[in-house]
Every structure is written in structure tokens, then in C-alpha cells.
């Protein structure tokens, strides 16, 4: 079961830091962590990644772990270097005012609904 990144953008009312990048990507799950070493080790390819970290290393981690997109939570804005790198690498960079708990909760409901579980 997969959803498109566009569906997630709509559902969570995300802002696109790089408008149009990767909206047609399919997303298979989500991972929440602010430790990049943990994300490198445990996120699954196709996940969207919810984090507070805005450092440019998040782009490299997203590319390496083959993540579908990065969602910066609680109003965090990407550093200029991060934005530039994400643009160069074609990594979708989304932002929300929602704290990670609520963003993850909404995503969880969305995935369950798509699976017909609720």
C-alpha cells in the first residue's frame, strides 16, 4: 500500500520549501527521529522523514537512505545550505507548523485509512 507525496502534502497541509519537487513520488511509510545516525540505520527506503534538524546533512541522509521526502516539523525552516543541497539533489523538503507528534499521528491515521484499517 502506497500513497503519493501529493496526498500527504494535502492531508497535512504541508508547505513546500522547494515547490513542485518530487510531488509524484510514492511513499511507503514514515520515520521520526532527530538523530541522523539513527535515521541512516533504521529508516526504510520510501519513508517520509519527520525531523527538527535543519542542518544540510539531512539531505545527504535522505539521499543515502532513499527517503521519499523530509518534513521539518514545529515551524522549523531549512538552513540556506540545506535548501540549496536539497534542490541540487532533488529531495522534496516540506515544512509544517505541527509538532512531530501531531504530524506523525495524522500520517499514521492516513496510512491506516488507506489500508482500510479504520
Amino acid at each position: 500500500m502506497k500513497v503519493s507525496l501529493q496526498q500527504i502534502i494535502n492531508e497535512l497541509e504541508l508547505s513546500e520549501a522547494l515547490p513542485g519537487v518530487g510531488k509524484d513520488r510514492t511513499v511507503s511509510g514514515a520515520y521520526c527521529s532527530d538523530l541522523l545516525s539513527d535515521v541512516m540505520a533504521h529508516a526504510q527506503p520510501g519513508d517520509v522523514w519527520l525531523t527538527l534538524q535543519t542542518h544540510q546533512n539531512i539531505v545527504a541522509v535522505a539521499v543515502m537512505a532513499e527517503l521519499a521526502a523530509i518534513i521539518l516539523t514545529r515551524g522549523m525552516r531549512p538552513d540556506p545550505d540545506t535548501l540549496e543541497k536539497a534542490s541540487r539533489e532533488g529531495v522534496p523538503l516540506l515544512t509544517t507548523q505541527l509538532p512531530a507528534f501531531e504530524a506523525a499521528g495524522r500520517l499514521y491515521c492516513m496510512f491506516r485509512r488507506e489500508r482500510g484499517e479504520c
Partner: peptide, 14 residues
């Protein structure tokens, strides 16, 4: 170390 460290939090040395 995993905590309070550059590699733990930022994954690798930029």
C-alpha cells in the same frame, strides 16, 4: 558516542 556528538546527531562529518 551516540549522544551529544556530531556523528551521532548529524550522521557524518560535513
Amino acid at each position: 558516542r551516540p549522544a551529544y556528538s556530531l556523528l551521532g546527531h548529524l550522521g557524518f562529518l560535513p
